[in-house]
């Protein structure tokens, strides 16, 4: 069972208290962008077998969105951080690198 710590209220929330929101740090494209950009934003989501950055919502708690780094191959949660981050915090990236030396890093 997945347990993620809500970075706002500090609650270690179990999966049924949360609602998943797929890929984090999406670059949004709107009117005027190319077909490729729009396709990549809408459909070509990152789908790694390994470290994945994603959105979650503490839906039955404080109700806020937050972000998490999680391994899709083992369900290990590396850490969570506020949704107001434009990329994963450096200390979290370092922590993941230490645990997964062959991880190619956040792009």
């Amino acid at each position: 069972m997945l347990v993620l710590e809500c970075p706002y209220c500090g609650v270690k929330a179990e999966e049924t208290e949360l609602s998943p929101g797929y890929e984090a740090h999406l670059k949004r494209f709107g009117p005027g962008s190319s077909d490729e950009e729009f396709e990549s934003y809408m459909f070509a989501r990152k789908n790694p077998k390994g470290v994945h950055f994603e959105r979650w919502r503490h839906v039955y708690g404080c109700g806020k969105w937050f972000l998490a780094a999680r391994c899709t191959a083992t369900l290990e949660v590396f850490g969570t951080y506020p949704a107001q981050s434009s990329e994963p915090p450096a200390d979290l990236v370092a922590k993941i690198k230490a645990k997964r030396p062959d991880w190619k890093g956040y792009k």
């Binding site: 797929y22 994603e54 191959a73």
Partner: peptide
């Protein structure tokens, strides 16, 4: 289905 990316062939019990 579960609502998150997963390669473990193991789903959520709930």
């Amino acid at each position: 289905t579960d609502g998150f990316n997963n390669f473990t062939q193991r789903g959520s019990f709930h």
